[in-house]
Design a binder for these strands. Sequence first.
DNA 1: CTGGGGACGGGGCCC
DNA 2: AGGGCCCCGTCCCCA
Length: 264
Amino acid sequence: MPRSFLVRKSACSRRRPNYSELHDSSPEFTFQQPYDQAHLLAAIPPPEVLNPTASLPTLIWDSLLAPQAQPIGWASLLPQEIPKAVELTSLSDEDSGKGSQPPSPPSPAPSSFSSTSASSLEAEGYAAFPGLGQLPKQLAGLSVAKDPQSRKAFNCKYCNKEYISLGALKMHIRSHTLPCVCSTCGKAFSRPWLLQGHVRTHTGEKPFSCPHCSRAFADRSNLRAHLQTHSDVKKYQCKTCSRTFSRMSLLHKHQESGCSGGPR
DNA sequence: CTGGGGACGGGGCCC
DNA sequence: AGGGCCCCGTCCCCA
């Protein structure tokens, strides 16, 4: 099951944020050019990693496997007096862009929120939930350890996505605050290595090279996808015609356009 | 329509 | 606990 499906995307989530709206967020992390060559080179995988024989799929994915199981939030399992979820807009100065205004949330914020400091919010969260502070042992110690479905849910106030750990939520919130800003073009990213990859689009650096041809890539994922093109048997297979594709998106297109049914 | 490259998002793992 | 990295994935665009 693709990990990206673990959390359902909201309608407003994807693609091309309006970076001009982010100008007043202070960057937590910026890259100055020229980019650190040594750091880039250090990221080049060893030959064995790039060896396509190693990366060739040993099994064709069942592309029709659908994610079925969604974690059940704690809320439904708990008595009323326990808060349903912690909603956090900013958990620290780091996540909030060092105190600057984050992008406007798509949903209305609780009115009490503006007067609540990040640290106190965090403290409240820690105090209210198992593993973070005081909570009945039967809830905190036992069920949390043994039953993942019984964990407390942490909700993002921006998009209401639900997370089972505070760390995951904090990481997610960065995708709203976008603290890493490109010093060249001003684009903002949630994580330093996303910015790092983006900076390569300015520098033209392509540290990931294909061992089979002369192509090089700035992004490891793109090299991985490219390596599929050197393989006769590709990773994603149509269940109807057994034809294989190098990318899930190609398989989806193939299926949406109506599989002819016969092997190619 | 298909195949591929470019750019990027995000959860999990490891240190 | 937090940051860096890996891996898997999507979307857009173009040939």
